[in-house]
């Protein structure tokens, strides 16, 4: 529905493990294709310029902002969105559960993108420090949480129950290091 007149392309790609075969307007952004053509709710739109990260999806195993790619560029790719996290059962996965337990979301609008960035981080770095978590999600804007409980939730998912303690200790150490 985001499309207007203009050239189109036939594209095929894998979305959350399932094949998709469609015609896409060449000018359509991937985010609009996912939302308006394929009916996904997870990736959100929060800006015009690729700064907010609410539209973050995984593209061939790496996160991208789906508002900064064209739908036609998805041809042949494997794309995963936040919809892929909860399994067939619909149960929250470990990361989502940690967000729930640690109040890592308020309005929930940025959450889909934050979860995808966190998942990408944890795939590369099983035990990230608080600083590494902050770096990994700094392409995702959140206006509700001050990021404190997001960092805690990701740390909790990575480090289990000691997550909070670890985050606080690392922050204290960081503060000393900066001021030493």
């Amino acid at each position: 529905m985001a499309s207007g007149p203009g050239p189109t392309q036939d594209i095929e790609f894998t979305l959350n493990g399932k094949p998709v075969s469609r015609t896409a307007s060449s000018r359509m952004l991937l985010i609009h294709f996912l939302r308006d053509e394929l009916g996904l709710r997870g990736p959100k739109i929060g800006c015009d310029t690729g700064h907010c990260g609410a539209c973050t999806v995984s593209y061939n195993g790496k996160t991208i902002k789906s508002c900064m790619a064209l739908a036609v560029q998805a041809d042949g790719a494997e794309i995963d969105t936040v919809e892929s996290l909860a399994g067939e059962s619909g149960d929250l996965d470990e990361l989502q559960e940690s967000f729930r337990e640690n109040h890592g979301l308020q309005c929930g609008y940025c959450t889909s993108g934050v979860l995808m960035s966190a998942k990408f981080l944890l795939e590369r770095n099983e035990k990230p420090t608080a600083e590494e978590i902050r770096e990994a999600i700094h392409g995702n804007l959140c206006r509700c949480t001050g990021y404190v409980n997001i960092v805690k939730a990701i740390s909790g998912a990575a480090h289990g129950d000691e997550g909070l303690a670890l985050v606080e200790r690392l922050n204290r150490e960081h503060a000393k290091e900066v001021s030493a």
Partner: peptide, 17 residues
């Protein structure tokens, strides 16, 4: 923990768009 969270975490919330 909040009742709201499960739907929001699973992208089952309903925002205007």
């Amino acid at each position: 923990p909040r009742k709201e969270d499960e739907r929001l975490l699973k992208a089952q919330g309903s925002f205007v768009d």
